[in-house]
Design a protein around this nucleic acid. Structure first.
Lengths: 125, 125
DNA sequence: CTACCTGCAAAAGGTTTGCATAGCC
DNA sequence: GGCTATGCAAACCTTTTGCAGGTAG
């Protein structure tokens, strides 16, 4: 992967924003200082960074994909009130994969888990 | 909810096809015998049937929504090779919700879990 | 009769892609 | 110089929606 200014900017934006930014967040954020950057480039670079293991992609049911600079295993919760995505400090449920592998015979490569709920800010309103 | 022929057809299609059909599957399936049915109507009825609790919607990460006539609690596995969706007979992980509720303070209303892997048909190739 | 439903087509997200040009190595 | 990346815009896919006419109760 050869260097590009745009890729560096995209990576930095994800690194500096623990809000699990969407592609559009990254784009809007960067547009301020870089009016010429294009949304296509942002998407291409996010996907490249995911493929090369620099960041992770979080698929949100009925929502835009989000990106995460944290590479260690953890889960995510989405607040159905404000829409924000929070980290959930819980180790990957490996037993779950093994259990399902045993009972179904399928080769289990992993799982996607998103917790739904209401965050601390929103529940106090 | 007042009776309509189209809604009946949509519901029957989901009932008779344990493949967890997508909206487009239902539409194509029905078009054969009902060339005038519209995709919009299929979507509207699927959503209505979900809202009224007749069927469930399964959100697939990076894929179309699927619909399920089974109302009892279970999970789903998607085969990354053939794309088919299978039932996983595993009781809902209520403990998980409670655990996360305790550790985070969030109100947890539920979770979306999709298992990824390779199904029995595909792994033997 | 009236409220709800349909078909059709357009619009609305979100994401990818083709193309000509620009930039890294 | 060659290969990769960019900007721009168009295309794509899935899902929703506005509208005018149709149908159940």
């Amino acid at each position: 992967m050869k260097y590009s200014k745009q890729r560096e900017l995209v990576l930095n934006t994800v690194m500096e924003n623990p809000v699990h930014p969407t592609a559009d967040f990254v784009y809007s954020h960067l547009r301020n200082a870089n009016p010429n950057i294009s949304l296509g480039t942002v998407y291409r670079n996010l996907n490249l960074l995911v493929e090369h293991g620099f960041i992770h992609k979080i698929a949100i049911p009925n929502g835009s994909d989000r990106f995460d600079f944290r590479l260690d295993e953890h889960y995510h919760m989405i607040c159905n009130s404000c829409g924000e995505v929070f980290d959930v400090e819980l180790n990957r449920l490996k037993e779950l994969d093994t259990e399902i592998e045993k009972s179904t015979g399928f080769i289990v490569t992993g799982h996607d888990l998103i917790i739904n709920g209401v965050c601390n800010n929103c529940k106090n309103k």
